[in-house]
Design a binder for these strands. Structure first.
Ligand SMILES: NC(=O)c1ccc[n+]([C@@H]2O[C@H](COP(=O)([O-])OP(=O)(O)OC[C@H]3O[C@@H](n4cnc5c(N)ncnc54)[C@H](O)[C@@H]3O)[C@@H](O)[C@H]2O)c1
Ligand SMILES: NC(=O)c1ccc[n+]([C@@H]2O[C@H](COP(=O)([O-])OP(=O)(O)OC[C@H]3O[C@@H](n4cnc5c(N)ncnc54)[C@H](O)[C@@H]3O)[C@@H](O)[C@H]2O)c1
Lengths: 213, 213
DNA sequence: GTAGCATTGTGAATTGTTTCACGGAGAAAA
DNA sequence: TTTTCTCCGTGAAACAATTCACAATGCTAC
């Protein structure tokens, strides 16, 4: 299987959500239906689905259950994939609350803090450790994904700890471009930048809904 | 001035941050410096800066103060631009805390809630109103940007309220593709999708830091 | 059967974005 | 003055993503 564009991966989660919400008595679905639910074109949906190795039929479109299983096989881990979060502040807490117990195969199993008042206890049902223990904990729990929700100036330090501990993907909320080896995937979520973009385009006439974060 | 690509607008905020953090005694800066600080190439920096109508000099690069002023003139509103947020839950609260008092020209001046225990009081120094009063408040306060941080199923309803009240740009955290007129700019921040993407690429070998949210 | 229709998968075209590469310009040194 | 740097601005090339467009398919109607 060759390398799949990140944007395609992202859109597959959109299709999966649509499929999940289709009533059970509806066995098939067309690309234009999936497209409409995600604000995309039918051609793009079909193009994206090509990576799955599952083909629909011209007559009925895609079998809902089958397509869903194929997306799940592609997108979801076969066994539990573990996640850690560094920084339990405004954002960190929100993420912990939101993701706790939501997905069986993708679970936040540890959080790390620099503040002694926060670590060595449970936060949102998840053990919070000192950031100094991160490398050990990450290795012992076999954590492959890290979330960075610490202040901007601490972000590179945490990234280095994560990478040193063998983490393979990072979701970064800090406004700091991280320097990591090329085999570690980084997805930046820059909320301040997003605000500036919206504010900018709100001042212009111009159109064009941007896709996704 | 013609239409500027959203990605360029986003990167200009990155350059602005770098300029802001340059010590005052350093009067000039080269494209390759700006590039390194944002994980980009010098050519892309120069290309982006073309939209500003301000040119550097081959000898010294860009004048820090001047370039900064030009980016500010391009990116920041001339007069205060007002923002409202719907939904003061996990995310809404985090955003209110983070953005309060941070930017003089881009200010969250109202929040809207459906829960009577939350509205008709101050939250994070910002008056929280019933969502039913949204149209009136948005018009009276001349709010042009809306943030959607309500549950997924409520998102379209809130978007319709926002659009009806004349809002021009929306930052959407709900996992629901919004349907809005083409002259309203929508920036989606889909945290669950971002998690799935990171988890997917953490499982593959493959490289490639994705840019920004 | 066959005609008519809507849909799929995908090569080709298009559109959008990034990188290359080079002319030109200022500075410094001889 | 002339030479030699390094860097900027930008046209052109390369690359990436999206959309078009059409042959092929299977269904329904007659
Ligand atoms: N909250 C928002 O809405 C928002 C918006 C835009 C950007 N951000 C960015 O997200 C990041 C987090 O923001 P926040 O509002 O949650 O910040 P916060 O200050 O509320 O939380 C940061 C937490 O990280 C902890 N911490 C500090 N250094 C640490 C270290 N070395 N290791 C582990 N933990 C450490 C702190 O104790 C604190 O609890 C920041 O980089 C910020 O710029 C946040
Ligand atoms: N928190 C996260 O980390 C996270 C992650 C991924 C996605 N999201 C998305 O962000 C959105 C908000 O998430 P959250 O965790 O903050 O949710 P939340 O349930 O904590 O907060 C939602 C708030 O919206 C209010 N609300 C409900 N209906 C409303 C209406 N019609 N008008 C105004 N207010 C209304 C509720 O009273 C509540 O306070 C959801 O769509 C969620 O899917 C959140």
């Amino acid at each position: 299987m060759k390398t799949v564009p990140p944007k395609t991966v992202g859109r597959l989660t959109l299709y999966w959500r649509t499929l999940r919400d289709i009533p059970a008595d509806q066995t098939h679905v067309y690309s234009h239906v999936l497209a409409a639910k995600s604000r995309l074109t039918p051609a793009q949906v079909r193009r994206d689905l090509m990576v799955l190795g599952y083909a629909g039929t011209p007559a009925h479109g895609y079998n809902v259950q089958l397509l869903r299983k194929h997306i799940e096989a592609f997108l979801f881990p076969a066994s539990e994939q573990r996640v850690a979060i560094a920084g339990v502040g405004n954002i960190g807490r929100a993420l912990l609350k939101f993701f706790s117990g939501r997905r069986p195969t993708l679970r936040i199993v540890a959080s790390f803090e620099a503040n002694p008042e926060k670590y060595d206890r449970l936060i949102q049902g998840c053990q919070c450790y000192s950031i100094e223990k991160a490398e050990t904990v990450i290795r012992e729990m076999d954590i492959s994904v890290g979330i960075i929700a610490v202040p901007d100036k601490e972000a590179q330090f945490v990234a280095d700890v994560f990478v040193g501990a063998g983490i393979r993907g990072i979701l970064n909320f800090a406004r700091a471009p991280l320097h990591v080896p090329p085999d570690v995937y980084v997805e930046d979520i820059d909320l301040a930048m997003a605000m500036d973009k919206v504010a900018y385009f709100a001042r212009r006439q111009q159109a064009g809904s941007s896709a996704v974060g």
